[in-house]
């Protein structure tokens, strides 16, 4: 029985693979492919160092700083916006099933949109630029943060709440002393994690015109200025790695 089952599962998986690979167009290298690839690599190894800092106009450092600012501001907005949602979506805090259901629905509704789609919408709404990027990341992160934090709220130990009630604390004080201290470390940890994600997302947002380092990147790509592409990529790699490293170190201290 189990042997028949195992064989039939293996057959099914094999069929799916064959079907998937059959659907692939034949991989075909253009004549220029090799040339372009070698140009990109030579650009990466011979970056345009002059672009790193240019007191007169746009340069790499300013672009990266813009990106960082978009990510930081977006995360900050999300951190504030997600708080009411995450508590309203926790069924151990809010007794009304309707409120919990609606809040959970709003959070998953926001999560449906990829950051890029949100950014496109906001570019239409507020015009291209960093502000659209900030709004996209700020709203987009609420979905994920709200879900994670509400799950953390739902797992708190409510015995302490009983003890606080018994000391004569009103519901607000009880909440501040029995629930908040249990959620706070997770809260900061999630916010930092989302900041890491946002930094990566913000580098891409510029490509569609929502501010940050993506804009000079797409310009350099379109004029095949590989040395500049190289230096921008190096800058992004360095910034993202550094931020992941620092934020990871800080997050480790929270748990």
């Amino acid at each position: 029985m189990s042997r028949v089952r195992r064989i039939s599962i293996m057959m099914a998986i094999l069929c799916i693979y064959i079907w998937a690979f059959a659907g692939l167009p034949i991989v075909e290298l253009k004549e220029t492919s090799l040339e372009v690839i070698s140009a990109i690599f030579s650009g990466l190894f011979h970056p345009d160092w002059g672009y790193v800092y240019d007191p007169g106009g746009e340069d790499l450092l300013r672009g990266l700083l813009d990106t960082l600012a978009i990510a930081l501001l977006g995360t900050f907005i999300a951190a504030i916006l997600c708080v009411p949602f995450s508590f309203m979506a926790s069924k151990n805090i809010v007794k009304s099933k309707a409120t919990v259901g609606i809040s959970k629905f709003i959070l998953s509704f926001i999560r449906v949109f990829p950051d890029i789609v949100l950014a496109l919408l906001f570019i239409k709404a507020v015009g291209p630029g960093a502000f659209a990027g900030v709004l996209a990341l700020g709203i987009g992160a609420v979905g994920m943060l709200g879900k994670l934090i509400s799950e953390s709220v739902e797992s708190v130990d409510l015995n302490a709440k009983e003890a606080l009630t018994a000391t004569g604390a009103n519901p607000i004080k009880t909440f501040m002393f029995a629930v908040v201290p249990q959620v706070l470390p997770n809260f900061f940890s999630f916010i930092l994690y989302r900041f890491e994600v946002n930094v990566r997302a913000a580098t891409v947002l510029g490509i569609i015109g929502a501010g940050g380092i993506g804009t000079p990147l797409i310009f350099a790509l379109s004029v095949r200025d590989w040395e500049r592409v190289g230096v921008i990529l190096l800058g992004i790699i360095l910034m993202v790695t550094l931020i992941d490293l620092i934020s990871g170190k800080i997050r480790a201290r929270f748990t």
Binding site: D157, N159, A160, E162, A163, T165, A166, T167, G168, A169, N170, F177, A178, P181, Q182, L184, P185
Partner: peptide, 22 residues
Amino acid sequence: NELYRIRRDIGMIFQNFNLVHR
């Protein structure tokens, strides 16, 4: 508030201590 005032005068100890662990 009257209830909270009365409760304030009554200390309570629980089987599972009911502390905030963190």
